Amino acid sequence: MNLRFTKMHGLGNDFMVIDGISQSLPEDGLPFPADEIRRLGSRHFGVGFDQMLIVQPARGDADFRYRILNADGSEVSQCGNGARCFARFVREQGLTDKQSIRVETAAGQMTLNLTEDDQVTVDMGAPLWAPEQIPMTAKAESDSYFLVSGSQAWEVGAVGLGNPHCTLLVENVDTAPVETTGPMLESHEQFPERVNVGFMQIVSRGEIRLRVYERGAGETLACGSGACAAVVIGQRRGWLDEQVTVHLPGGSLQIEYAGTGGIRMTGPASRVYDGSIEIKTD
């Protein structure tokens, strides 16, 4: 089938965004075979993306349903940078004229607010700290956990934000072992659904630097939910204030969390180009 799409990015975290409302897609299961998603995600043989985002009609009282497929073909529940691109996409495609948009995800509803200066603020929901909610295997909830693999051990904070995150403190993100430690922790046995791994350098109580190794995608230029995770983990340890600027390789996000309610993330979303491509459906 021939499918229209838009290529977008949020601070360099890039997406293939598909309108599944005016185009017919399956509502359940993967809309395309996993090997076809991997082909489309290839930067040599396809469109190239970190995640594929699919807009579908809501099943409940939300405005839309929001699905996220990694470049390896796996489906995940949450993506903060993708959510900002989703909001701009549905407005630019004329699918809604609302400034505040409610979307249904596999992790529950979230609200996306477009600002007057072309930024998007996303209510990412409240952090989940109980191990079974993250999910991870641990004897009890803790501010930090020790993960062991062979002769190596790491102290990390862990939180659930619709997807699992762990964050470790580093002296300098430029020299952090993201390429080696990232994949080791991503598939660590204590995380049954794998985990996104953040490497956080604290600049001040209101500013951090961050690199994120995302499950199913590898290191990306930015990870919105990873930025939220790093901030709330840093707040829980007493290191950070309620409002924090997070500098990622692709740019900066503003994260705000007062200790209750949802985490608010504000940042840009950019359209790169529109296109169409032949996709195998079986």
Rank of each mutant, 00 (worst) to 15 (best):
N70C: 10
M200E: 07
G261D: 14
M124P: 09
E193D: 13
Q254N: 09
R88K: 15
P192I: 14
T6C: 02
D35M: 06
G108A: 10
D117W: 00
R67T: 09
G198H: 02
P26A: 12
I255L: 10
Q93M: 13
T260F: 05
P177C: 07
F5L: 02
R39K: 15
F89S: 02
R39Y: 08
A87C: 05
N113P: 01
F5W: 08
P192Q: 10
Q109A: 08
C166W: 00
G20E: 11
I101E: 01
D72G: 03
A217D: 09
I202P: 01
R84G: 04
E155Y: 04
V195G: 09
A83L: 03
I277S: 04
M8W: 01
G20M: 09
P131V: 13
R102F: 01
F146K: 14
A217G: 03
G29R: 15
L3H: 09
S24I: 08
G267W: 05
Q78D: 01
D63Q: 11
S149P: 00
S22I: 04
A107G: 05
G73A: 11
E104M: 05
D14V: 02
Q243E: 15
P268R: 10
G218R: 07
G94F: 10
G251Y: 06
Q99M: 06
E116S: 15
T266M: 10
P164M: 08
H165S: 13
E132D: 15
V55H: 01
S22N: 14
G73N: 08
T115V: 00
F45V: 11
S270W: 01
E207F: 04
D97F: 05
D174V: 13
S100A: 15
G226T: 05
R84F: 00
D63C: 05
L240T: 06
L128N: 08
R4Y: 12
V232S: 08
D117T: 08
L253C: 06
P183F: 09
R84T: 03
D28V: 15
G10C: 01
R88E: 13
V148S: 13
Y257H: 15
M124F: 05
I134H: 06
A58W: 05
S144W: 00
A227K: 01
T115R: 15
N81S: 12
N70S: 09
A107N: 09
S151F: 00
L185G: 12
Q109V: 03
P183H: 05
L53W: 04
A217C: 15
V170F: 07
T137N: 13
G234D: 12
N113K: 14
I54G: 02
R271V: 13
W154M: 15
L248C: 12
A229T: 08
I37P: 08
D117S: 12
N70D: 09
N113Y: 03
A158P: 11
Y145C: 02
T281K: 11
G216T: 07
L11A: 14
G108C: 11
V103P: 02
V173N: 03
P249C: 07
M1Y: 11
S100Y: 02
S24H: 13
L253E: 02
G160N: 07
Q235I: 10
